[in-house]
Write a protein that binds this DNA or RNA. Sequence first.
DNA 1: TCAATGTTTCCATGATTATGGAAATGTAGC
DNA 2: GCTACATTTCCATAATCATGGAAACATTGA
Lengths: 115, 115
Amino acid sequence: MKPEQSVDKLASLAQVTRLRIFRLLVQAGPPGVNAGAIADALGIAPNTLSFHVAHLARAGMVLPRQEGRFIFYSANYPAMDELIAYLTDNCCQGKGRCLPKTAAASTTRRRRQAA
Amino acid sequence: MKPEQSVDKLASLAQVTRLRIFRLLVQAGPPGVNAGAIADALGIAPNTLSFHVAHLARAGMVLPRQEGRFIFYSANYPAMDELIAYLTDNCCQGKGRCLPKTAAASTTRRRRQAA
DNA sequence: TCAATGTTTCCATGATTATGGAAATGTAGC
DNA sequence: GCTACATTTCCATAATCATGGAAACATTGA
């Protein structure tokens, strides 16, 4: 993953409303939640929700799926996985056991060390 | 971890210069790198580095350590671990196997589902 | 105390961002 | 075509942020 893409993904999560949306979708699972229901659940205006969920979608952190006149959004799990792998990539030159809870990401892949 | 703290941590990473700094430190390991060396490695002005590394430190993603007249910064690995756990918390209601590379974080701990 | 070096703070500027009201677009059913 | 509903786009405003020049502060050694 390119640094700019990672920044976009992180920026899409680095905002209270969007983080709430994303976590709601992460916990909702693959079926996702439609826009109006998200707005209701979080108590935000529909246009504000649209703005933020579009931000998340543009960054690739959520995926839209049309269903009738509803649009369901779901978390993009592979994208989150990739992002975490990028952050923890080549951790401690691959030597240390720095991330007890997240061990898998840093030890299963070795990439170029481009800072 | 509180949502605001997570947002601060994510925001501290959601910027090209800071992400480069952080990844440099993640790969450097616990000893860390002093401010001037980071600035040199990334080709940025010392005041700009100071601004960004302070941002990362305020968010708790890096830790400063005084050594002579140098200040070494190192990645705060537990903080990164907590952040990842927060993002993946209660993933798919704990049912799915959504995050192949990051399995540990979502399956080893069950927290409150505060969105 | 003085000089040299490492790091941070002060300040101004240009750029990006979040928010909501209002209007527009799209979709479904009659 | 018309109406109802779901969602998005347009627009303006206020707030936050990134950057670098210059000055200040801190630490070390003579």
